[in-house]
Design a protein around this nucleic acid. Sequence first.
RNA 1: GGCGCGGUACCCAAGUGGUAAGGGAGAGGUCUGCAAAACCUCCAUGCGUCGGUUCGAUCCCGACCCGCGCCUCCA
Length: 492
Amino acid sequence: MTVRLFNTLTATVEDLVPADGRELRIYACGPTVYDYCHIGNFRTFLQMDVLRRFLRQQGYRLRHVMNVTDVDDKIIRNAAEAGLAIGAYTAKYEKAFFEDMEALGCERPEVVARATENIPEMIALVDRLAEKGLAYRTGDGSWYFRIAGFPGYGKLSKKDFTGLNDGARVDVDEYDKDSARDFALWKAAKPGEHFWDLNLGPGRPGWHIECSAMAMKYLGESIDLHAGGEDLMFPHHENEIAQSESASGKILSRHWMHVRFLLVEGRKMSKSEGNFFTLRDLLLKGHKASAIRFLLISVPYGHPLNFKQDGLIESANAVERLRTFAQRLRGGGFAEGRDAALEDLAQRTQESFREALANDLNTAEARAAIFEMARTANSAADAGSLRAGNVPAMLEALRQFDEIFCVLEDRDAEITRRALEWGQAEGRLDRAALQLQEELSLDEHRIEALVAEREQARRSRNFARSDEIRSHLAAKGILIEDTRDGVRWRRR
RNA sequence: GGCGCGGUACCCAAGUGGUAAGGGAGAGGUCUGCAAAACCUCCAUGCGUCGGUUCGAUCCCGACCCGCGCCUCCA
């Protein structure tokens, strides 16, 4: 099925098709590894994950490149403060980033490109621009891009730069630029700073050039899709377009996708507002990784997502409902035969799911289809009309759902344990986290033993003892359910 | 000031020119030793306000109110 996505460049929904008819070439802006990533960052990466998973499910072949920005002003500053080489400083955060991505169930893109490993390519690109008269050097040895030399500037963000914009907010530090809007391609090194000295003079790359150079290196001069958070639209992506298209004479990307912001309680997340959460913060508060993933992908990428911690509880409950349903189907015990209406439902669910995602990645509608199937199927199972022959198609619908949403398998306790280990090593465990650690320290054998003892008590109709065990476990976050097919336990 | 987005039930949140998906929470019920799970019923004559177009608008147009984002580093 052809996937349709809103294209920022044309402001319309368009088919996503590989230009070469074979492999879709995607470049997505990745993290700057100067700190732990926050959930706003992860909303974007998670939405990209949904996109790539769905594209592959629909038969697309992908070459998805994500950059890791491992040199910039903050990194240089923080590394110097920590007395570390920048590589040593960024290694820690890059590692944490991929651990977090793994915890959230994000697939690794086909190519992960580090800025510091592609400096020669960036320099070559600046050279090309200089040859065309679009890059110039200022008194301090920095290189800038001449925006006046690129007529299309502003076409992505729909900004008009033809007027007299200079002067509105002039950057006083950069007085010798030709125009206040001109942006840095190469920043001259200040004393004591890390620098590369090839043929542009000692310095380091400007932010935008890395993406232009790496997209070109790994995907070619013209790609199918370029994506990132909405804040990157301007100036970052606009500047990439200016650099790449000036150098190559070709369109950088035919399609542009921007993930809208995640807001916290209706406001933009920022450290100064105190509404700033990293993934690790949330895990240590006891939120499940699956709930975080489910919440962050449940609102379609084209809408802002209003994040609240209560939403995570709700999402955890919603995920649990689907897990319970899947378990029920797998548990079997249904009468032979096949109900035609339910067979039809399973097919329709698969179609609705696929169609919702193909329509500009409408994850909200896609998940609604699955919940509808779960409700009807549960109801039928209660009534006895769900037959063994209906199970495979329903499990297939769930499989297709989980290939994208990736929340049914329960890895939550393990992921939280890892976060707790990290928190302990970093001295970041507060009372709530210690309580959580205590709960998770109860191992499965011990739980199973207590559950068995409770079963024994129940059989001899010693309900006092049975309830005592149940409430003892409940206090440790373990919920026990007696079902027709025996006992089942799970963590709150 | 410029550009843009959004205001849908208690909360989160899709969506459509023909009368409001889904999830969570809540209330009542079925089942259960009791719970839990699951299911059933209830929970917006209503989709920011006011006009307009239309046989008909939450969805189109206009004005207004409110909230937010970008325009500077930022997913």
